[in-house]
Protein backbone atom coordinates (compact mmCIF):
# COMPACT_ATOMS: atom_id res chain seq x y z
CA UNK A 1 0.00 0.00 0.00
CA UNK A 2 1.25 3.45 -0.91
CA UNK A 3 0.44 6.28 1.49
CA UNK A 4 2.06 9.04 -0.54
CA UNK A 5 2.78 9.02 -4.26
CA UNK A 6 4.60 11.88 -6.02
CA UNK A 7 5.17 11.93 -9.78
CA UNK A 8 7.02 14.70 -11.65
CA UNK A 9 6.22 17.33 -9.03
CA UNK A 10 7.15 20.88 -10.03
CA UNK A 11 6.68 24.09 -8.07
CA UNK A 12 8.30 27.37 -9.07
CA UNK A 13 8.48 30.74 -7.32
CA UNK A 14 9.19 33.22 -10.05
CA UNK A 15 12.18 31.95 -11.99
CA UNK A 16 13.33 29.61 -9.23
CA UNK A 17 12.08 26.04 -9.37
CA UNK A 18 11.84 25.06 -5.70
CA UNK A 19 10.70 21.55 -6.64
CA UNK A 20 11.95 20.36 -10.00
CA UNK A 21 10.49 17.06 -11.12
CA UNK A 22 10.33 15.07 -7.90
CA UNK A 23 9.29 11.39 -7.87
CA UNK A 24 8.75 9.57 -4.58
CA UNK A 25 6.61 6.84 -3.04
CA UNK A 26 6.12 6.39 0.69
CA UNK A 27 4.57 3.15 1.89
CA UNK A 28 1.84 2.79 4.49
CA UNK A 29 3.33 2.23 7.94
CA UNK A 30 6.73 3.56 6.95
CA UNK A 31 8.76 6.19 8.78
CA UNK A 32 10.33 8.28 6.04
CA UNK A 33 12.84 11.07 6.61
CA UNK A 34 13.30 13.82 4.06
CA UNK A 35 16.73 15.45 4.32
CA UNK A 36 18.19 18.36 2.47
CA UNK A 37 19.90 21.73 2.92
CA UNK A 38 17.86 24.89 3.49
CA UNK A 39 16.14 25.85 0.26
CA UNK A 40 16.27 22.30 -1.09
CA UNK A 41 12.50 22.16 -1.56
CA UNK A 42 11.65 20.10 1.55
CA UNK A 43 9.11 22.48 3.04
CA UNK A 44 7.52 23.25 -0.32
CA UNK A 45 7.13 19.53 -1.03
CA UNK A 46 5.68 18.79 2.40
CA UNK A 47 3.28 21.74 2.22
CA UNK A 48 2.00 20.53 -1.14
CA UNK A 49 1.41 17.11 0.43
CA UNK A 50 -0.42 18.79 3.32
CA UNK A 51 -2.69 20.69 0.92
CA UNK A 52 -1.36 24.12 1.91
CA UNK A 53 0.24 24.84 -1.48
CA UNK A 54 -0.66 23.97 -5.03
CA UNK A 55 1.67 22.20 -7.44
CA UNK A 56 2.53 23.74 -10.82
CA UNK A 57 2.88 20.36 -12.50
CA UNK A 58 2.98 16.69 -11.65
CA UNK A 59 0.73 14.33 -9.74
CA UNK A 60 0.42 13.98 -6.00
CA UNK A 61 -1.69 11.47 -4.13
CA UNK A 62 -1.87 11.39 -0.33
CA UNK A 63 -4.00 8.60 1.21
CA UNK A 64 -5.60 8.22 -2.21
CA UNK A 65 -6.61 11.87 -2.66
CA UNK A 66 -5.20 14.99 -4.24
CA UNK A 67 -4.39 17.07 -1.12
CA UNK A 68 -5.39 20.33 -2.76
CA UNK A 69 -8.97 19.24 -3.40
CA UNK A 70 -9.24 16.92 -0.41
CA UNK A 71 -12.09 17.39 2.03
CA UNK A 72 -12.80 17.18 5.75
CA UNK A 73 -12.80 13.36 5.68
CA UNK A 74 -9.24 13.43 4.34
CA UNK A 75 -8.09 15.97 6.96
CA UNK A 76 -9.59 13.63 9.54
CA UNK A 77 -7.00 10.99 8.58
CA UNK A 78 -3.87 13.14 8.67
CA UNK A 79 -2.00 14.92 11.45
CA UNK A 80 0.33 17.87 10.92
CA UNK A 81 2.96 19.08 13.34
CA UNK A 82 3.78 22.56 12.11
CA UNK A 83 7.18 24.19 12.47
CA UNK A 84 6.07 26.71 15.09
CA UNK A 85 2.95 27.31 17.06
CA UNK A 86 2.59 30.50 18.97
CA UNK A 87 -0.70 32.21 19.69
CA UNK A 88 -1.75 29.60 22.22
CA UNK A 89 -0.20 31.38 25.21
CA UNK A 90 -3.49 32.15 26.94
CA UNK A 91 -4.76 28.56 26.92
CA UNK A 92 -3.66 25.42 28.73
CA UNK A 93 -2.48 22.26 26.96
CA UNK A 94 -5.62 20.44 28.10
CA UNK A 95 -7.92 23.16 26.70
CA UNK A 96 -6.33 23.32 23.24
CA UNK A 97 -5.98 19.53 23.01
CA UNK A 98 -9.66 19.07 23.91
CA UNK A 99 -10.76 21.72 21.43
CA UNK A 100 -8.62 20.19 18.67
CA UNK A 101 -9.81 16.67 19.50
CA UNK A 102 -13.42 17.79 18.98
CA UNK A 103 -12.74 18.51 15.31
CA UNK A 104 -11.85 14.84 14.61
CA UNK A 105 -14.25 11.93 14.16
CA UNK A 106 -12.33 9.40 16.25
CA UNK A 107 -9.83 11.24 18.44
CA UNK A 108 -7.50 9.87 21.07
CA UNK A 109 -8.48 10.74 24.62
CA UNK A 110 -6.94 14.00 25.80
CA UNK A 111 -5.55 12.28 28.91
CA UNK A 112 -3.84 9.65 26.76
CA UNK A 113 -2.21 12.30 24.58
CA UNK A 114 -1.07 14.36 27.56
CA UNK A 115 0.59 11.25 28.99
CA UNK A 116 2.10 10.26 25.63
CA UNK A 117 3.85 13.61 25.23
CA UNK A 118 4.79 13.79 28.92
CA UNK A 119 2.91 16.95 29.82
CA UNK A 120 0.98 15.61 32.84
CA UNK A 121 2.46 18.20 35.17
CA UNK A 122 1.88 21.08 32.75
CA UNK A 123 -1.58 20.05 31.49
CA UNK A 124 -3.39 22.85 33.32
CA UNK A 125 -0.73 25.53 33.16
CA UNK A 126 -0.95 28.41 30.68
CA UNK A 127 1.06 27.53 27.57
CA UNK A 128 2.95 30.83 27.98
CA UNK A 129 4.69 29.15 30.94
CA UNK A 130 5.95 26.13 28.99
CA UNK A 131 9.57 25.66 27.91
CA UNK A 132 10.49 25.37 24.23
CA UNK A 133 10.71 21.59 24.44
CA UNK A 134 7.38 21.34 26.25
CA UNK A 135 5.71 23.51 23.59
CA UNK A 136 7.14 21.30 20.87
CA UNK A 137 5.76 18.22 22.61
CA UNK A 138 2.39 19.96 22.78
CA UNK A 139 2.64 20.58 19.01
CA UNK A 140 3.17 16.87 18.53
CA UNK A 141 0.23 16.17 20.85
CA UNK A 142 -1.95 18.42 18.67
CA UNK A 143 -0.72 16.49 15.61
CA UNK A 144 -1.61 13.07 17.00
CA UNK A 145 -4.78 13.79 18.99
CA UNK A 146 -6.91 13.03 15.91
CA UNK A 147 -5.48 9.48 15.68
CA UNK A 148 -3.99 10.15 12.22
CA UNK A 149 -3.04 7.40 9.75
CA UNK A 150 -0.39 9.73 8.35
CA UNK A 151 1.63 12.18 10.42
CA UNK A 152 3.72 15.06 9.04
CA UNK A 153 6.56 16.15 11.31
CA UNK A 154 8.44 19.26 10.27
CA UNK A 155 11.77 19.55 12.13
CA UNK A 156 10.19 18.24 15.32
CA UNK A 157 13.15 18.36 17.72
CA UNK A 158 14.76 21.68 16.85
CA UNK A 159 15.73 23.28 20.15
CA UNK A 160 15.41 20.11 22.24
CA UNK A 161 17.97 19.11 24.82
CA UNK A 162 19.49 15.63 24.33
CA UNK A 163 17.22 13.94 26.90
CA UNK A 164 14.09 15.54 25.42
CA UNK A 165 15.14 14.31 21.96
CA UNK A 166 15.57 10.73 23.23
CA UNK A 167 12.13 10.87 24.88
CA UNK A 168 10.65 12.29 21.70
CA UNK A 169 12.19 9.56 19.56
CA UNK A 170 10.59 7.00 21.87
CA UNK A 171 7.21 8.61 21.27
CA UNK A 172 7.68 8.55 17.48
CA UNK A 173 8.72 4.88 17.56
CA UNK A 174 5.60 4.06 19.58
CA UNK A 175 3.41 5.81 17.00
CA UNK A 176 5.21 3.98 14.20
CA UNK A 177 4.78 0.62 15.95
CA UNK A 178 1.03 1.34 16.09
CA UNK A 179 1.03 1.58 12.29
CA UNK A 180 1.14 5.37 11.79
CA UNK A 181 2.85 6.41 8.56
CA UNK A 182 5.27 9.23 9.36
CA UNK A 183 6.91 11.74 7.05
CA UNK A 184 9.66 13.57 8.88
CA UNK A 185 11.84 16.45 7.80
CA UNK A 186 14.92 17.11 9.90
CA UNK A 187 18.34 18.68 9.94
CA UNK A 188 19.64 16.11 12.40
CA UNK A 189 21.22 13.12 10.70
CA UNK A 190 21.27 11.05 13.89
CA UNK A 191 17.54 11.65 14.21
CA UNK A 192 16.93 10.29 10.72
CA UNK A 193 19.22 7.34 11.48
CA UNK A 194 17.36 6.51 14.70
CA UNK A 195 13.82 6.89 13.42
CA UNK A 196 13.59 6.38 9.68
CA UNK A 197 13.02 3.18 7.75
CA UNK A 198 14.13 5.04 4.63
CA UNK A 199 15.81 8.36 3.96
CA UNK A 200 15.43 10.60 0.93
CA UNK A 201 17.96 13.36 0.28
CA UNK A 202 16.76 16.27 -1.83
CA UNK A 203 18.57 19.32 -3.11
CA UNK A 204 17.75 21.72 -5.90
CA UNK A 205 14.20 20.36 -5.83
CA UNK A 206 15.25 16.84 -6.89
CA UNK A 207 15.79 13.53 -5.16
CA UNK A 208 19.56 12.82 -4.97
CA UNK A 209 19.46 9.57 -3.02
CA UNK A 210 16.91 7.22 -1.56
CA UNK A 211 17.74 4.29 0.69
CA UNK A 212 17.75 2.92 4.22
CA UNK A 213 19.92 5.02 6.56
CA UNK A 214 22.48 2.17 6.72
CA UNK A 215 22.83 1.92 2.94
CA UNK A 216 22.46 5.54 1.88
CA UNK A 217 25.00 6.58 -0.74
CA UNK A 218 26.66 3.14 -0.62
CA UNK A 219 27.64 3.60 3.02
CA UNK A 220 27.58 -0.11 3.89
CA UNK A 221 29.98 -1.06 1.12
CA UNK A 222 32.43 1.82 1.74
CA UNK A 223 35.84 0.93 3.10
CA UNK A 224 36.21 1.10 6.87
CA UNK A 225 38.95 2.90 8.70
CA UNK A 226 40.90 1.05 11.40
CA UNK A 227 42.93 3.24 13.74
CA UNK A 228 45.22 2.33 16.66
CA UNK A 229 48.23 3.57 18.64
CA UNK A 230 51.63 2.06 17.95
CA UNK A 231 55.07 3.31 19.13
CA UNK A 232 53.43 6.50 20.39
CA UNK A 233 51.99 7.24 16.95
CA UNK A 234 48.45 7.18 15.59
CA UNK A 235 48.20 4.66 12.74
CA UNK A 236 45.23 4.39 10.32
CA UNK A 237 44.40 1.87 7.64
CA UNK A 238 41.55 1.93 5.12
CA UNK A 239 40.29 -1.53 4.37
CA UNK A 240 37.37 -3.49 2.95
CA UNK A 241 38.04 -6.26 5.50
CA UNK A 242 38.25 -4.56 8.90
CA UNK A 243 37.56 -7.72 10.92
CA UNK A 244 40.53 -9.46 9.35
CA UNK A 245 42.77 -6.43 10.01
CA UNK A 246 41.71 -6.21 13.65
CA UNK A 247 42.35 -9.92 14.11
CA UNK A 248 45.86 -9.52 12.62
CA UNK A 249 46.53 -6.55 14.88
CA UNK A 250 45.37 -8.52 17.90
CA UNK A 251 47.80 -11.30 17.02
CA UNK A 252 50.63 -8.83 16.59
CA UNK A 253 49.97 -7.09 19.93
CA UNK A 254 49.24 -10.41 21.62
CA UNK A 255 45.84 -9.25 22.93
CA UNK A 256 44.60 -5.69 23.41
CA UNK A 257 45.24 -3.23 20.58
CA UNK A 258 45.90 0.23 22.14
CA UNK A 259 43.16 2.81 21.42
CA UNK A 260 41.52 0.72 18.70
CA UNK A 261 38.82 2.45 16.61
CA UNK A 262 36.97 0.95 13.63
CA UNK A 263 34.79 3.45 11.81
CA UNK A 264 32.70 3.77 8.67
CA UNK A 265 31.53 7.03 7.08
CA UNK A 266 28.75 8.40 9.29
CA UNK A 267 25.38 9.22 7.76
CA UNK A 268 26.43 12.83 8.15
CA UNK A 269 29.64 12.27 6.12
CA UNK A 270 27.63 10.56 3.39
CA UNK A 271 24.97 13.27 3.43
CA UNK A 272 27.48 16.11 3.22
CA UNK A 273 29.22 14.41 0.29
CA UNK A 274 25.86 13.99 -1.46
CA UNK A 275 24.75 17.59 -1.12
CA UNK A 276 28.17 19.18 -1.58
CA UNK A 277 27.63 20.04 -5.27
CA UNK A 278 24.41 21.85 -4.32
CA UNK A 279 25.74 23.98 -1.52
CA UNK A 280 27.79 27.13 -2.13
CA UNK A 281 29.24 29.70 0.18
CA UNK A 282 27.32 32.92 -0.29
CA UNK A 283 28.62 36.41 0.43
CA UNK A 284 27.95 36.20 4.15
CA UNK A 285 29.79 32.90 4.27
CA UNK A 286 26.72 30.93 5.25
CA UNK A 287 25.92 27.83 3.23
CA UNK A 288 23.02 28.28 0.83
CA UNK A 289 21.48 25.99 -1.73
CA UNK A 290 22.36 26.75 -5.31
CA UNK A 291 19.68 27.29 -7.86
CA UNK A 292 21.60 25.41 -10.52
CA UNK A 293 19.82 22.66 -12.39
CA UNK A 294 23.03 20.70 -12.97
CA UNK A 295 22.09 17.71 -10.87
CA UNK A 296 24.34 14.70 -11.27
CA UNK A 297 22.57 11.56 -12.38
Amino acid sequence: MTAISIRGLVKAYGAKRAVDGLDLDIETGEVFALLGPNGAGKTTTVEILEGFRTADAGEVSVLGSDPHTANRLWRNRIGIVLQTSSGLDLLTPREILASTAHTYANPRSVEEVIAAVGLQEKADVRIAGLSGGQRRRLDVGLGIVGRPELLFLDEPTTGFDPQARRDFWGLIRTLASEGTTILLTTHYLDEAEHLADRVGVIAGGRLLALDTPANLGGRASEEATVAWLEDGERRTLRTATPTLEVSRLADRFGGEVPELVVSRPSLEDTYLTLIAPHVTQDDEGAPAATTTRKVPA
Binding site: S85, T103, Y104, G146
Partner: peptide
Amino acid sequence: AERDDGTLKRLRSTPMP
Protein backbone atom coordinates in the same frame (compact mmCIF):
# COMPACT_ATOMS: atom_id res chain seq x y z
CA ALA B 1 -2.57 38.26 15.05
CA GLU B 2 -3.91 34.75 14.44
CA ARG B 3 -2.97 34.88 10.78
CA ASP B 4 0.53 36.06 11.68
CA ASP B 5 1.28 33.61 14.49
CA GLY B 6 0.10 30.56 12.54
CA THR B 7 -3.09 29.92 14.53
CA LEU B 8 -5.17 30.07 11.35
CA LYS B 9 -2.84 27.67 9.56
CA ARG B 10 -3.02 25.27 12.50
CA LEU B 11 -6.83 25.40 12.46
CA ARG B 12 -6.78 24.85 8.70
CA SER B 13 -4.73 21.68 9.24
CA THR B 14 -7.55 20.09 11.27
CA PRO B 15 -10.88 18.84 9.91
CA MET B 16 -12.65 21.85 11.45
CA PRO B 17 -14.97 23.41 8.84
